[in-house]
Amino acid sequence: MANETHAVDAAAAVAGHAAEAAEKGGMPQLDFSTFPNQIFWLTVTLVVIYWLLTRIALPRIASVLADRQGTISGDLAAAEEYKLKAKDAEAAYAKALSDARAQAQKIIAETRSEIQKELDAATAKADAEIAERLAQSEESIAEIRAGALEAVQSVAAETAAEIVVALGGKADKAALSTAVDARVKG
């Protein structure tokens, strides 16, 4: 369709675009009369762009990039430093912690031995007291027991004498006490 229309155009060669284009050689790109103009202005443009770039833009961007690089590497170095510091602090902390732990251990051991000593003393004292009391008690028990035995003997002898009298016998004091003695001990 394009070809056809254009064929009609070109063949007719009437005034208008096609005829004008044909006069100029068809393609504007091959119209050599405009070449000097384009070359001149292109040169101007490129020189201006080059000038703007080298004078202003490129140094500025390069310096910004360098600054950024510097900032980044500076920050990284600072971060490294902080990291080292943090590591030191961590080591110090760990040391303090272990020291404290050792101290605590020591205190605990001391306290324990002290307590043990006190405890031992108290136990010994208590033991002694207990032993003393025990001896006292045993003594009093023996006393009581002796008292009781005596009482039992005398009561038994009296009772036996009473019983003998009641049975119509004659109470022989010596024989009775020997017999009661033998019975009670028996």
């Binding site: 103009n37 384009q38 070359i39 202005w41 443009t45 201006v48 762009i49």
Partner: peptide, 18 residues
């Protein structure tokens, strides 16, 4: 006419590019 120094539409768009 388009002489070598004439500002044309090419010039205009090159300058817009600048």
């Amino acid at each position: 006419e388009v002489h070598w120094y004439t500002p044309t539409n090419a010039t205009l768009w090159m300058f817009i590019g600048i």
